[in-house]
Amino acid sequence: MTWDWAMITILVLIIISGIFSLLGAIGLHRFPDVYTRLHAATKTTTFGSIFLAIAVIVYSIFRITEVGPENDGAFITLAAHTFIALLAILITNPTGAHAIARAARKTGIAPEQAVIDEYEEVD
């Protein structure tokens, strides 16, 4: 893999990540109530972060193979830490979304334009 091809791969990954992250932010304004906004925000920003992290990991792997085995390990550390940050986002994002949705429902905010609402208080 030459440098140009690596750059094109990274560019495509970053454009995908940027488009979806921006769509999530716009979705915060397009949707009518807190639940639909959560849909937009959680899914798209998680997806965007995954692609940005994959871009950084591809870049690190390319730098590792380019510089060769006598590099100082900085890019291995970069890739490993990016992977851990990705795991943290993947686990915490949906859990935070549940917490917000549950809090919103408990304060008595009904979903707008709802055609069905089978929610009941349980503990």
Binding site: F20, L23, G24, I26, G27, R30, F31, P32, Y35, T36, H39, A40, K43, T44, F47, R105, P111, E112, Q113, A114, V115, I116, D117, E118, Y119
Partner: peptide, 17 residues
């Protein structure tokens, strides 16, 4: 994500719990 992108652009929703 493709689904959410479609709904963000068209604004077509039919929500419920």
């Amino acid at each position: 994500n493709v689904d959410v992108a479609y709904r963000v652009i068209t604004g077509r929703i039919n929500p419920g719990i």
